[in-house]
């Protein structure tokens, strides 16, 4: 089929347009115009300062839930593993530390994607850290190690992501 034939055939096809919408469906679509309630629910950069808190709450509520859940999981895990290590901490009173080491270890990093009630996607970057504190008292020959889990959740805009 050469170019002319193709154009002729395309115009032939276009002479038969798609069927018009059934009247009831057209009425349904016209009534389905996006309403002000949903349209005004925006996630970022609100118009009014007071809306900022609502937006912030939108972000903070799921973030806090993730933080709390992560913290509980890690806390339970650490407790079950290292309850023996916690006991010496009770004896820290009166210790004279010769050496103090503070360390942060990134345990895991992952992204969580959630959908807000208005359908807008939001992404959270979650990082699990293990904060380690080692206190050494050489005179008594004591080394105390404390590990604390920490979860960091940062909301990330899709555009910037």
């Amino acid at each position: 089929m050469n170019e002319q034939e193709q154009e002729r055939y395309e115009s032939e096809l276009r002479r038969t347009p798609p069927a018009p919408l059934p009247a009831h469906f057209m009425a349904r679509l016209q009534a389905a115009k996006p309403g002000p309630e949903r349209g005004s629910r925006r996630l970022f950069l609100p118009d009014h300062p007071s809306l900022g808190w609502r937006v912030l709450l939108h972000l903070v509520a799921p973030a806090m839930a993730v933080v709390l859940a992560g913290f509980l999981v890690v806390r339970l895990k650490v407790k079950s593993e290292g309850s023996a290590k916690e006991r010496p901490l009770a004896a820290t009173v009166g210790l004279k530390a010769n050496d103090l080491q503070v360390d942060q270890e990134l345990v895991s990093s992952f992204d969580v994607v959630a959908t807000l009630p208005n359908g807008q996607p939001v992404r959270f970057r979650c990082r699990q850290w293990k904060d380690q504190l080692v206190v050494t008292d050489k005179s008594r020959g004591v080394e105390i190690e404390q590990n604390s889990p920490r979860v960091e959740v940062v909301p990330v805009r899709f555009e910037t992501y």
């Binding site: 115009k33 349209g39 005004s40």
Partner: peptide, 12 residues
């Protein structure tokens, strides 16, 4: 900055 404020409903 405030791109969100440009969000308006389509006119009928």
């Amino acid at each position: 900055m405030n791109s969100g404020s440009k969000h308006e409903l389509p006119a009928d």
